[in-house]
């Protein structure tokens, strides 16, 4: 059914709607419908989460739910503050450790390393992203945490004068969780940083070198200023990842529902509490509502962080769009 086909009798082609194009509007309707489906889904998503979380907010108040330092399942008290603090501490640690390493690796790969090593190094860095969350958890609790314990104890005893250091060191703790998160966000932060750095015009780098800049001076003169916004965005995307990361953290944080005294204490995060208490909450409506409310807080937090990240990255990379390398687990 070729469009506008000329019949064998030699009639002139029909300039009206050719039979083939009758499907055109349908394709448009269907595709537009699919796109609208996405919007409907997100809207529905938010509303349902909110409706289901309502009982918890009604009971404890919005402010009370988020800021009360009291998560006690046995007494049906649900204040998410210890979870929120845990989420912020662990993702903060992840950011402090992971981002500088990720940026350094991106700089090394794009600006310093021999061309032959560029591809293999990139693949190795991306491989970290192929390891699933639960495997990081497995490795974290049975290999990393026990091996780290002596070092953590030594550190805790030696610099106990610092705030949030000192006291007992438990095997699962905030720091181990933060370290695992740092490893997990490394590939995505590094990949976006590399992408941003690749957009630095070669003319700018040559201008710096021709002025007699050393490699490092070229990086500071041409590469970093140009990619600053994009790198900030990469870090924020990493933060969003770290905040939402669930299973690995659930395994290595100890799941203790209170604000730990030091970074080497056990704790809890918003995501971990959902994964961990979900089974027992199925039959307890208020507990379930509280977990869903925790999910909602988590959702809003990641929305906020990701919105900032997107603004940065879009400004940094201009019109080029970044393909997500994966998603939070």
């Amino acid at each position: 059914m070729a469009a506008g086909s000329i019949s064998a009798t030699g009639d002139r082609p029909n300039l009206g709607r050719s039979p083939g194009s009758r499907l055109d509007p349908w394709m448009q309707y269907v595709l537009t419908g699919l796109a609208a489906l996405i919007l409907a889904l997100i809207g529905f998503f938010f509303v349902r989460l909110f409706v289901e979380a309502r009982p918890a907010f009604d009971r404890f108040g919005y402010f009370g739910f988020v800021f009360d330092n009291n998560w006690d399942v046995s007494r049906s008290q649900y204040g998410a503050w210890p979870l929120l603090v845990g989420t912020l501490i662990t993702s903060g640690i992840a950011l402090v450790i992971g981002v500088p390493i990720a940026i350094a690796a991106a700089l090394y790969v794009t600006e310093l390393c021999p061309v032959r090593l560029r591809q293999p190094l990139t693949i190795l860095l991306e491989l970290l992203a192929a390891v699933p969350s639960v495997v990081y958890g497995l490795w974290g609790i049975f290999v990393l945490a026990p091996k780290l314990l002596p070092a953590e104890k030594w550190f805790s005893d030696t610099v106990s004068f610092l705030p949030f250091v000192g006291g007992t060191v438990s095997i699962p703790n905030y720091f181990v969780a933060g370290l695992i998160l740092a490893i997990m966000i490394l590939p995505i932060v590094s990949a976006i940083a590399r992408e941003v750095m690749a957009t630095v015009p070669v003319e700018n780098k040559e201008a710096a070198l021709a002025l007699g800049a050393t490699r490092w001076e070229m990086i500071r003169l041409a590469v970093l200023p140009y990619s600053r916004a994009g790198i900030s965005g990469a870090a924020m995307l990493g933060l969003g990842r770290a905040i939402g990361e669930t299973i690995a953290v659930t395994i290595v944080i100890g799941n203790a529902p209170n604000v730990g005294k030091s970074v080497f204490s056990q704790g809890y995060t918003l995501a971990a509490v959902i994964a961990n208490e979900f089974g027992e909450a199925a039959s307890d409506p208020i507990h379930r509502a509280a977990l869903i409310a925790a999910g909602l807080v988590l959702f809003v937090l990641t929305l906020f962080v990701n919105a900032i990240a997107r603004a940065f990255v879009n400004r940094g990379v201009r019109r080029e769009r970044i393909v997500p390398q994966g998603m939070a687990g």
Partner: peptide, 13 residues
């Protein structure tokens, strides 16, 4: 010193 084909001032400066 060198002057290039395309003017290349540092864009952030």
């Amino acid at each position: 010193g060198m002057v290039f084909q395309k003017p290349n001032p540092f864009p952030t400066m």
